[in-house]
């Protein structure tokens, strides 16, 4: 856990006068799984979006392997290939088959060999249990299947890090498991990830480190076993209580 993939230094992000991220510093090392939790609107999704330059930032720096991520800069096209991102909404391209969804970017952007990419895509589909869906269109898939394809689509780029933004939030409960299992599997295989989720049990299972955010700042961070058993701050305690059903 020595080599840093991502370094965030004093990041500030405003929407108008509203500071959504108010000075965050954080590093993610190779092979590490960092899970961001916190109340809705605490800035955790925005933080992920700043990491691959989808949002302009007002202060601080984000670097990938020491190279700055700058919103609107040409270098982004290259940097983004190293950052896989999966969103909450089903964002597959509806006019392309599952296979084409996965192979478009490696072929067009990375200029990789078509046969190699397709073989790789089928291998990934098999890994997430969807080998029979290669020629289906997204509209023929369930929500859980779509998210698994979206994960494959990011993985095939061989990213340095995967950013998962509440990828199960829009799913029916019975489909949450199949997607989270895929993520757990990735974690086991040493994939570097930053995950935003509301599934606390999953967070505990998958994370090397938990970051608890509120009001645009990091309130508490630590190993999952410690954080979930003995949260140090009052805010984290209050937050975790909302997930326990008490009479």
């Amino acid at each position: 856990m020595s080599e840093h993939i991502i370094d965030i230094n004093g990041l500030v992000k405003h929407f108008g006068d509203n500071a959504v991220i108010d000075g965050i510093s954080l590093s993610v090392s190779k092979g590490e799984v960092v899970v961001l939790i916190g109340p809705s609107g605490c800035g955790k999704s925005t933080l992920l979006r700043c990491l691959n330059g989808l949002e302009p930032i007002q202060g601080g720096t984000v670097t990938l392997h020491g190279e700055p991520v700058i919103h609107g800069d040409k270098s982004l096209y290259r940097i983004r290939q190293k950052i896989g991102m999966v969103f909450q909404s089903y964002d597959l391209f509806p006019h392309l088959t599952v296979l084409k969804n996965i192979t478009l970017s490696p072929i067009k952007v990375q200029k990789r060999d078509k046969a190699e990419v397709e073989a790789k895509a089928r291998e990934l589909l098999e890994r997430v249990g969807l080998s029979d869906k290669a020629d289906s269109y997204p509209s023929e898939l369930s929500g859980g299947q779509k998210q698994r394809v979206a994960i494959c689509r990011s993985l095939i780029m061989n990213p340095e890090i995967m950013l998962l933004d509440e990828i199960t939030a829009a799913l029916d409960p019975e489909m949450v498991h199949e997607v989270l299992n895929v993520v757990l599997d990735l974690a086991k295989n040493g994939t570097t990830m930053m995950i935003v989720t509301h599934e606390m049990a999953f967070a505990e299972a998958v994370a090397d480190r938990i970051i608890f955010m509120d009001g645009g700042v990091i309130v508490e961070e630590g190993k999952p076993s410690e954080f979930f058993k003995n949260p140090k701050t009052e805010r984290a305690q209050r937050f975790l209580k909302t997930f326990t059903y008490t009479k």
Binding site: L54, L76, R80, F87, F93, H95, K108, V109, S154
Partner: peptide, 27 residues
């Protein structure tokens, strides 16, 4: 065309032109 179609195209490293040609125009 939903906003996330644009965002996921960009996240995959597509250039703006590639995004329009392969993702946005066809839809």
């Amino acid at each position: 065309i939903p906003r996330h179609q644009f965002e996921s195209s960009l996240s995959l490293g597509l250039s703006k032109i590639q995004m329009y040609v392969f993702i946005i125009f066809p839809q």
